[in-house]
Nucleic acid binder design. Structure first.
Length: 444
RNA sequence: CGGGGCGUAGCGCAGCCUGGUAGCGCGUCGGUUUUGGGUACCGAAGGUCGUGAGUUCGAAUCUCGCCGCCCCGACCA
């Protein structure tokens, strides 16, 4: 993409409404624009990152054998009356009435709807286990939205629902989700720690929240430093293997890690003092096993091997997709702007032409652009008639992990400069080698 | 929902107390500057002062209502 043909409304000054760094940077980098309290438009740059995060979630869900689908944002109130949550949910649920005076609601979650779909079409244990998920906009009418996309009213969320014939199978689904979530967050360059949590209004027996450590987090968290040393890495997982998934879950849930809701001082004090940590965390996902909480009242049963009708065991599993952008920025930025992890970056690298209009520099940039594109990479070429300083400042602000700087001085010696946004380290390389290096970084 | 604050040019703000018809910086547009970390200079455009009513000869300024937004708290993925 050429910057002169793109829409990137960066702000030099910080809008006064933004309090925390991720919100400020998302506004300044031209990623989002507030449409109303807690509701945002996703401008091109923000949209690209949102789609990247979404793509990773899709890939990892499907790797775990979960099936994508899409449910609507608007739901009939009747379903919610059936589960009893229409009254229980309270004013956070946005209620709407259509022209026929029918009660609708903008879905804050989809347990009722998915249960309805399930009971309409599935009746035998032979069809189980099954996990369906979707990534869809949700609405919760927070009393006080804040922190940009970290706590908006409208938000994009992946929610998945498992259906299993018995407890053991459902627990495997729970474990499978935990493993897939660990992979998902790590691919986004995040360390998200699973913490034993409170089940909240959704209800349930077993639940973990995934938290990204950050000063601006809304939850106070207590953990054993040992857990931050765990890395998922390239390990291959057979998601159908119950023991293997259970083993990984055990590994990640053994060190103490809890939010303030479930924190137990007595147990925490058994952690060696030098490893005890107290911090704040941003919740970016949660997994629940809730058994037959919805299947029972809504009549979602299957016939088991013995020929009996039994309510299915369910769980639900969420990832806050739009919120993750805020969390990633909170965890990865500096004074000059965002530092995107390579897994989610909106463009693979930037090309800065220091002297737009200089025949040599222009040609070198075009060649770099074509060569990178031919490798399957997406560069952002700053071809504006701007001073070098302005171009550098823009690149730093929008956080592309790699920058290739092209100027007449370097070209005289046959080199361009490849700079890491994260470390600031630069290397002078021939254009060909620079392209090869970037391609190698992204495995292209 | 309780408490506090804000709304004046695209963005950040001053002016309001003490009424006299709107200003600064950045950005934008047109030039000059040829420039390796937001360059400098010249010129220009851009505002029903959130909105409605009231007081007044006269309201951005005073009074009241409404709308929107932000902050602290309670709540929350």
């Amino acid at each position: 993409m050429r910057l002169t043909r793109y829409f990137l409304p960066v702000l030099k000054e910080t809008p006064s409404e933004a309090q925390i760094v991720s919100h400020r940077l998302m506004l300044r980098a031209g990623m989002i624009k507030q449409a109303s309290a807690g509701i945002y438009s996703w401008l091109p740059l923000g949209y690209k990152v949102l789609r990247n995060v979404e793509r990773i979630v899709h890939e990892e869900q499907q790797r775990a054998g979960h099936i994508p689908m899409l449910m609507p944002t608007l739901q009939s109130a009747d379903l919610w009356r059936e589960s009893g949550r229409y009254d229980a949910y309270g004013p956070e649920m946005l209620r709407i009435r259509d022209r026929h005076e029918r009660d609708l609601l903008y879905g804050p979650t989809n347990e009722e709807m998915i249960t309805d779909i399930f009971r309409s079409h599935v009746s035998s244990y032979r069809d189980l286990p099954m996990t369906l998920y979707h990534i869809q906009w949700k609405f919760r009418d927070e009393i006080r939205p804040r922190f940009g996309v970290m706590r908006g009213r409208e938000f994009l969320m992946k929610d998945g629902y498992n259906f299993d014939v018995d407890y053991e199978s459902a627990i495997h689904a729970y474990n499978r989700h935990m493993v897939s979530y660990l992979r998902t967050y790590e691919r986004m360059g995040l360390q998200a720690i699973p913490m034993r949590a409170d089940s909240g209004p959704i209800g349930g027996d077993d639940t973990h929240e995934f938290l990204v450590l950050a000063d601006t987090g809304e939850s106070e968290v207590f953990y054993d430093a040992a857990i931050t040393d765990l890395k998922f890495g390239d390990r291959k997982v057979d998601y159908d293997n119950r023991d293997e998934c259970a083993e990984i879950v055990k590994e990640w849930t053994t060190p103490y890690a809890r939010t303030d809701e479930t924190h137990d001082e007595a147990i925490f004090n058994q952690v060696p003092e030098e490893r005890r940590r107290t911090s704040r965390g941003i919740e970016v996902g949660q997994i629940f096993y809730f058994g037959t909480k919805y299947s029972e009242p809504m009549g979602a049963t299957v016939v088991n091997r013995e020929g009996q009708h039994v309510p299915v065991h369910m769980g639900s599993h969420g990832i806050g997709v739009s919120r993750l952008l805020g969390a990633i920025i909170e965890a990865s930025h500096d004074d000059n702007g965002i530092i995107w992890p390579e897994g989610v970056t909106p463009f693979h690298c930037g090309i800065v032409n220091l002297k737009q209009g200089d025949a040599e520099a222009d040609r070198a940039c075009e060649q770099l652009y074509d060569a990178l594109t031919a490798k399957g990479l997406e560069p952002l070429y700053d071809d504006r008639e701007e001073r070098a300083g302005a171009k550098f400042a823009t690149m730093d602000l929008i956080g592309l992990p790699w920058r290739i700087t092209v100027g007449p001085r370097g070209l005289k010696n046959g080199v361009v400069e490849l700079t890491s946004r994260k470390t600031g380290e630069s290397e002078e390389l021939s254009p060909e080698v620079a392209v090869a290096r970037v391609a190698e970084i992204y495995g292209k």
